[in-house]
């Protein structure tokens, strides 16, 4: 690690970034705070209500359910995507044409607009026109993601695994490529088993990328909106309504600006806390090296 030069003029270089991000981040955040303490009918008819919305939101059972659902969802997809991603990364060829081809093919789902991902699975899972739905019907499973809660969950999770495992896989793949060939030769001489090679050579090298992978997957799944919205619309009932969707419903659908703003702030604070914990962990790990 090189030592950095102390120079406060560097702020001039950061200024454009600060201004452009502040425009889209700080002004809206301030507005959300303003909304959250008022009952708003229109810009000229509004009343200060103090912390009433916060109390309402914190005690709102719909929010609690959405939050619980969100955590179950985020941990489920992490539990599937991380091991699966590592396996895929281990199987990918490291050299030659095959490596490029595998990289492109595996990366495809990442480049599909999120609503199209929803559409793909919406079609794929239908029993009348979709391959997956038809397959399930063929093997005698009564599967319908639009009316059955379990099936809806299964489809939403399957969709996320399909969509985002490539990200974990590509992160791990590049982590694996950073391991010098000498390590493997040493392991071969020691007759190390496949498992030992993974446990003592590959996994330690992967820790860093994995933490970042987990951070990204956790955060992104925590704000998931478009894919389940297109696929199930949050249903059946509200069984697949996650935090973002419940928020958008409240803000745009019912136009409850005040409570929606209070909801946003609670949501934002949770995100900020998780983000800080991960960031501190990553930075401390880099410092230790």
């Amino acid at each position: 690690m090189q030592t950095k030069v102390e120079n406060n003029k560097a702020w001039f270089l950061v200024m454009p970034v600060f201004l452009i991000v502040a425009f889209s981040a700080i002004i809206p955040l301030m507005t959300v705070v303003n909304y959250s303490v008022q009952d708003i009918f229109d810009p000229y008819t509004r009343y200060f209500v103090g912390t009433e919305w916060f109390k309402q939101v914190m005690l709102d059972s719909r929010l609690h359910e959405a939050l619980l659902r969100q955590f179950i969802y985020s941990f489920t997809i992490l539990a599937i995507e991380v091991p699966l991603g590592i396996c895929v990364a281990l199987m990918m060829p490291t050299k030659g044409r095959g490596a490029s081809l595998a990289l492109i093919l595996v990366a495809i789902p990442l480049l599909i607009p999120w609503n199209v991902v929803g559409t793909i699975w919406q079609i794929f899972g239908r029993a009348d026109i979709g391959l997956f739905g038809a397959f399930m019907a063929e093997i005698g499973v009564d599967y319908n993601y639009a009316s059955n809660t379990t099936d809806a969950w299964l489809t939403v999770i399957l969709m996320d695994v399909w969509h985002w495992t490539p990200l974990v896989a590509l992160l791990c793949y590049s982590g694996l490529r950073a391991i010098p060939e000498v390590y493997y030769q040493a392991a071969r001489i020691d007759q190390a088993s496949r498992w030992a090679v993974f446990r003592h050579i590959q996994l330690p090298k992967l820790t860093n990328v994995l933490i970042i992978g987990v951070l990204l997957r956790f955060m992104d799944s925590f704000m998931i909106y478009t894919e389940p919205f297109v696929l199930t619309g949050g249903g059946p009932g509200s069984s697949t309504t996650f935090l973002s969707q419940s928020l958008v419903q409240q803000a745009i659908g019912q136009f409850d600006i005040g409570p929606a703003a209070a909801f946003s702030l609670v949501y934002f604070l949770i995100i900020l806390l998780v983000c800080w914990v991960f960031y501190t962990t990553i930075m401390n790990m880099q410092k230790d090296k």
């Binding site: 991000v21 507005t31 909304y35 704000m223 969707q245 928020l247 703003a261 946003s264 934002f268 995100i271």
Partner: peptide, 14 residues
């Protein structure tokens, strides 16, 4: 970085 992680839904209305 915290802005990279913030859900767009939070800022939608403003």
């Amino acid at each position: 970085l915290s802005n990279r992680m913030a859900p767009p839904a939070v800022f939608l209305l403003p």
